[in-house]
Lab assay of single mutants.
Amino acid sequence: MQRVNMIMAESPGLITICLLGYLLSAECTVFLDHENANKILNRPKRYNSGKLEEFVQGNLERECMEEKCSFEEAREVFENTERTTEFWKQYVDGDQCESNPCLNGGSCKDDINSYECWCPFGFEGKNCELDVTCNIKNGRCEQFCKNSADNKVVCSCTEGYRLAENQKSCEPAVPFPCGRVSVSQTSKLTRAETVFPDVDYVNSTEAETILDNITQSTQSFNDFTRVVGGEDAKPGQFPWQVVLNGKVDAFCGGSIVNEKWIVTAAHCVETGVKITVVAGEHNIEETEHTEQKRNVIRIIPHHNYNAAINKYNHDIALLELDEPLVLNSYVTPICIADKEYTNIFLKFGSGYVSGWGRVFHKGRSALVLQYLRVPLVDRATCLRSTKFTIYNNMFCAGFHEGGRDSCQGDSGGPHVTEVEGTSFLTGIISWGEECAMKGKYGIYTKVSRYVNWIKEKTKLT
């Protein structure tokens, strides 16, 4: 034993070699072989497995989906700052455009905790909710729209109204504003409101030439003092309507412009014939205590009207009353817009006519005020429907199939267009061939041609 100890002390290297040989010859039971080890760690190889990531292109799944990435790591994937920024906006807080917040056709661009709407022409605001041009839906104005110097929408209202708090709607500024039905039992019968379409306001006024200088022999019209197929109006439903009495009662109609003036057809009036105007009328054979009678003290036909040349060209006249009318729910003026808007309103496509005229061709006159909704007829169809001249200051309205029309005794009465609950004068009943005849239409004086003249002559002093 002493000898062994001496050998170990003198030859430590020998001992180490012996131990190493023993270990190498022993069977290893701690580690699995290569094949079995792979069965336990069965993990798919990654895209760049075996390579240094710093030297390969980034992978979106590896960089940002398996674990949260930084902007720089995302930049490695896209290799483009702009594309990385677009991805980053949604990656950080989701897609803010998912709810489609942009209105009126706006395009949404996502941002971090926010979004941006790219608005089409005519709109602005956070969600493109603000109209900035009158060309689109009248700028959301209830009545009139004008573009300011910086191309912003400025709404306005006709006389007797003021802008509401929203700067879009119009509200009454006087007790009985024009064009409004205020009798409670008839307010439910107000005709369907007309909503502004998209309009090209630059070209809204037709490029028409008034044929002022045409000389033409007097034409022989049949029954051209021209509501057939209409309905009984309720008291106060058309408070701007008046009836004219002269040699015979209810020979023509008219509309209240203001307390002192009536507008009617020029062919209705004769110099030297006494005319009485009755406002607030409903049943011409009954006294309903809503009527107001006034005498006409002055007749002003349009300066281009000449019955000797043509009885229905420039067929418009103004009547001055001896005493002002007292405005109330049964006696209310009709609204008159400017030339541009009167023309736009007419193009809405349908209007209402009213009167006490004959209820059928050569038949009896109506006792109760009649009204009828009539569609506008395109000019080409209008011209083809008659052998008589249709001037540019006239328009056609009615039904091709016949059966409904204005008729004798309705002449001078109103053709009105309702705009968001307020009625505007767009025409004056003038003439036609018979009444409600198939293929024939009622012919009306186009008020847009005469609004400046009306307003100039009827100013209240």
Rank of each mutant, 00 (worst) to 15 (best):
P235M: 08
T381R: 12
P175T: 09
R358L: 08
W261I: 02
Y201Q: 11
V326P: 01
T332W: 02
K188N: 10
I17N: 01
V278Q: 04
L41F: 11
T290D: 04
H314T: 02
R294M: 01
I334H: 00
V326I: 10
C134D: 03
C335H: 01
E456W: 06
K39G: 12
P12R: 11
I210S: 13
V326K: 12
C117S: 02
E116P: 02
K339F: 09
I112H: 15
L460F: 12
V77N: 15
E340H: 13
G179Y: 00
Y305W: 12
D33K: 07
I136D: 15
L319Q: 00
P324Y: 03
L244E: 00
K247G: 03
N295G: 05
C69H: 03
A192T: 11
V451F: 04
K45H: 08
N328S: 13
C155H: 00
S430K: 03
S204K: 11
Q408T: 12
Y330V: 06
G230R: 11
V4N: 12
V416K: 00
N138W: 10
C18S: 07
N135T: 15
R404P: 14
I214E: 11
D200M: 06
R83E: 06
V368M: 14
V451P: 01
A207I: 08
G236C: 03
G432N: 09
D93F: 06
K39S: 12
M8N: 13
L369W: 09
R404I: 14
N313F: 08
F78H: 15
W431L: 08
C178A: 01
E323T: 11
G229E: 10
N328F: 01
R379V: 09
Y371L: 13
K339A: 15
P414Q: 11
K146Y: 13
V195T: 07
K51G: 12
V447I: 12
R379W: 07
E456L: 09
F78V: 14
R404N: 06
C102F: 00
E98A: 11
I429S: 14
Y352T: 05
D212S: 07
R140E: 15
G58A: 11
S99W: 07
N48Y: 10
T225K: 09
L369N: 08
N138T: 08
R449E: 14
F251M: 09
E456Q: 12
S169V: 07
F144G: 00
I390R: 10
E281K: 11
K387H: 15
V183Q: 09
N310I: 02
V153F: 14
L367D: 09
E129C: 02
L14M: 07
G246H: 05
G351S: 06
D200Y: 07
K311C: 03
S107V: 08
E124A: 14
T417S: 11
E285K: 10
R75H: 15
D198N: 10
K457N: 15
V183Y: 10
F348G: 14
Y352P: 02
A26L: 04
Y115H: 06
F71Y: 06
E281M: 10
G398R: 05
R364W: 05
F123M: 06
C157F: 00
T461R: 08
T386C: 09
A337G: 06
G412S: 08
A308L: 12
V199M: 11
S25A: 08
R180I: 04
I40P: 15
R43Q: 13
N127I: 10
E61Q: 10
K146T: 12
W356T: 05
G254P: 00
E320R: 01
Y371F: 15
T458I: 05
N222W: 07
K459A: 09
L376G: 03
S329L: 04
I309Q: 12
G253L: 06
N36E: 11
Q370A: 04
P375E: 05
V183M: 08
V269N: 00
I17W: 13
I454D: 01
S70L: 09
K51D: 08
I300D: 02
K247F: 05
E270D: 06
R364P: 09
G412Y: 09
E165C: 04
D410L: 08
G13W: 05
A192W: 12
V202L: 13
P120I: 07
C396E: 00
S329Y: 07
G280R: 02
E124P: 04
M65V: 11
A164S: 06
V30K: 15
G357K: 12
P120H: 08
G230A: 13
V416S: 05
D111H: 10
C102H: 00
P333W: 00
Y444A: 03
E288C: 04
K68L: 06
G253E: 03
K260C: 03
T417G: 01
R75F: 06
D110H: 15
P414R: 01
P175C: 03
I299H: 08
Q219N: 08
T81M: 07
F31A: 09
Q57T: 05
A279M: 01
V277A: 07
G412I: 13
Y312D: 02
G412D: 03
K347S: 13
T381E: 09
P120M: 06
V154I: 12
G349F: 09
M394K: 04
A308Q: 14
S430M: 12
D150L: 10
S99H: 15
C119P: 02
R379I: 11
Y161M: 04
N104Q: 06
A250V: 08
H303W: 08
K51S: 14
D249Q: 02
G13V: 15
Q2C: 15
K440A: 07
N306H: 10
F196G: 12
V447S: 03
N38H: 11
R3C: 11
P333T: 03
C252I: 01
E61C: 03
N213M: 08
D200G: 12
E288G: 05
V257S: 00
T84Y: 04
N36M: 10
G21T: 15
L60F: 09
H267C: 03
R62L: 09
R191C: 05
N166W: 00
V326M: 13
P177L: 01
D378H: 07
N393I: 02
T158F: 03
W118P: 04
N310D: 10
I284M: 08
V353F: 04
V227Y: 08
A250R: 08
K362V: 06
L372S: 14
C145T: 03
E53N: 07
L319Y: 02
C117V: 01
T186E: 14
D95Y: 13
V353L: 05
H361W: 06
T287Y: 10
S448G: 08
E456C: 05
L369D: 04
T461W: 07
C119I: 00
G122T: 04
P414F: 14
T215L: 06
N283L: 11
V451I: 10
S350R: 13
D223N: 12
G105M: 10
S430Y: 03
S350I: 08
G432T: 13
E231W: 08
D410V: 13
S99K: 15
Y91E: 15
H400E: 15
G280E: 00
G246C: 03
I17H: 02
L130F: 09
H34L: 05
L383K: 11
